[in-house]
């Protein structure tokens, strides 16, 4: 017969195990502390919001200038336009749960000008038809909400200046308002 104390201990371990499993499995869908939760997108007015260790918990490369643009049910597909610097850069579309869904880097584009349409596949077709856009780079995603993360190499003062200029010129607006 199992000692009563040992039985209580076993019960505690079972509860601990179930809590552990539940906490880990529920974290992605119930966490309120998402990587870019602290970013204020209300006053960006079509510009990208700069992110660094002061306003995000996301693990971003400090040698890069990082900026994000939000897309959701309100914005629908977004259109990112501007010109990129000659140094390394990349664009990643991320779901709210931090998964990277699609990426684009300097090697994928010819030239420095960028015109990119990002959103769910079906919505992209509607946006293209509505805005009369035929040839445009697209990021076709399986979700309606998420973030567009732009990373520009800013290893020294000169690179940082070029990256800041480029981010200042980038525009990220709802595609259907064009």
């Amino acid at each position: 017969m199992i000692d009563t104390g040992l039985r209580w201990f076993a019960a505690m371990l079972c509860i601990a195990g179930l809590t552990h499993i539940g906490a880990v499995l529920l974290a992605p869908s119930h966490s309120r502390n998402l990587a870019f939760t602290g970013i204020d997108f209300s006053e960006t007015d079509g510009k990208l919001a700069r992110v660094d260790d002061s306003n995000t918990a996301a693990d971003l490369d400090p040698a890069f200038l990082n900026a994000v643009c939000r897309f959701d049910d309100d914005t629908g597909p977004v259109r990112l336009t501007g010109s990129m610097p000659a140094t390394y850069w990349s664009i990643a579309a991320m779901a709210d749960d931090g998964r990277i869904l699609s990426t684009l880097s300097r090697e994928d584009l010819r030239g420095s000008d960028i015109d990119l349409l990002v959103g769910r596949t079906a919505a992209l077709d509607a946006a293209r038809q509505s805005a009369g856009i035929d040839s445009i780079e697209t990021m076709s995603l399986p979700v309606d909400t998420g973030f567009l993360l732009v990373r520009l190499f800013a290893g020294d003062i000169d690179d940082l200046g070029r990256a800041q200029e480029a981010v200042g010129r980038l525009e990220c607006r709802p595609a259907l308002s064009d």
Binding site: A92, M94, L104
Partner: peptide
């Protein structure tokens, strides 16, 4: 997956 929610997803394939 739980880490990625808070810390972001690292680098993508391209």
């Amino acid at each position: 997956a739980a880490r990625a929610v808070r810390r972001g997803g690292g680098l993508g394939p391209s």
